[in-house]
């Protein structure tokens, strides 16, 4: 669980998580914005179905995989949130056609 410092500088950006409207700080990565919005797990694994959350925040662990604007398995910590972005948490393996 993470919270923003009360005086954090920057514009607010509106996007959606699984269809719900959420708010990020300009410059947030998708993974950071998920943490800021209290998302516990961003996906379940294709191997065992275990829940996972962002772990390294620097693009090496691939635990923060999410679907962004209909493209599956994107590294949430490597993508900057844009206004109107649609972020979806994932269950298991990426859908072949998404």
């Amino acid at each position: 669980m993470f919270q923003r410092l009360p005086d954090a500088a920057g514009e607010r950006v509106s996007f959606t998580i699984d269809g719900r409207v959420a708010e990020a700080l300009a410059g947030d990565t998708v993974a950071a914005a998920l943490m800021a919005n209290g998302v516990v797990a961003c996906r379940t694994t294709p191997v065992s179905g275990a829940p996972r959350a962002p772990f390294c925040m620097m693009g090496v662990c691939f635990d923060c995989l999410v679907t962004i604007d209909d493209v599956g398995n994107r590294q949430g910590c490597q993508v900057t949130v844009r206004p109107g972005m649609r972020v979806e948490t994932q269950k298991g393996a990426r859908e072949a056609a998404r």
């Binding site: 993470f2 919270q3 923003r4 410092l5 954090a8 500088a9 990565t29 950071a32 800021a36 925040m57």
Partner: peptide, 12 residues
């Protein structure tokens, strides 16, 4: 990294 780039600190 969450602190530096997003001003996020743990709660709870």
């Amino acid at each position: 990294i969450l602190l530096k780039s997003s001003a996020l600190v743990p709660s709870g």
